[in-house]
């Protein structure tokens, strides 16, 4: 059983890396101010619902560092911003899921919004420019939409993976 879990986590990290690379190559969201759907979050949601919160943190943080060490993250600033978004959003989705009150769409929406809030806080501190917080309202709206999409798809995936037990 343990081997299966290790293998699943490994595949999850690899998939998250591929999705994050793919997303960076799609310029459809070109005319915007940093809006992203956040494909890798699909993996985090599935891992959270199939295995548990510790593994989700592991996959998320390892994905970010591996992308950085493989040279896909632009620079140290990119790494800091990724981490800031991931930490706040992980905290949100893990706590909200534990309440068992909400479906994965709501959990994912909160995750998406918190991700953008975390990044904007980090950007304002990193660049010592509070005015950058003006980007936030638009990012809150896009985060809600992105979170809903990710939440909806991850709900389908979790259902399809019903037979997979750890």
């Amino acid at each position: 059983m343990k081997t299966k879990k290790v293998a699943f986590i490994g595949v999850s990290i690899a998939l998250a890396m591929v999705l994050s690379y793919l997303e960076s190559q799609i310029p459809i969201f070109a005319a915007n101010n940093g809006f992203k759907v956040g494909f890798p979050n699909l993996v985090m949601m599935v891992v959270l619902y199939k295995i548990g919160w510790k593994e989700t943190v592991l996959v998320s943080i390892l994905r970010i560092f591996l992308m950085f060490f493989c040279g896909f993250t632009r620079d140290i600033t990119g790494l800091v911003l990724s981490l800031a978004g991931a930490v706040l959003s992980l905290l949100g989705i893990i706590l909200l899921k534990r309440t068992n009150l909400f479906s994965c769409i709501a959990v994912s929406v909160v995750g998406g919004v918190l991700h953008n809030i975390g990044q904007i806080i980090a950007v304002c501190i990193w660049y010592q420019t509070a005015g950058l917080a003006l980007e936030l309202p638009l990012l809150l709206i896009s985060g809600t939409i992105a979170g809903a999409i990710i939440g909806y798809v991850s709900g389908i995936l979790v259902k399809k993976l019903d037979k997979l037990k750890f």
Binding site: I105, V113, L140
Partner: peptide, 18 residues
């Protein structure tokens, strides 16, 4: 219903701040 309420609240905060 509480999912819809939660998402609605988040969206309302987002739109009103915008």
């Amino acid at each position: 219903i509480r999912d819809i309420i939660l998402i609605g609240v988040v969206l309302a905060i987002a739109v009103s701040s915008f």
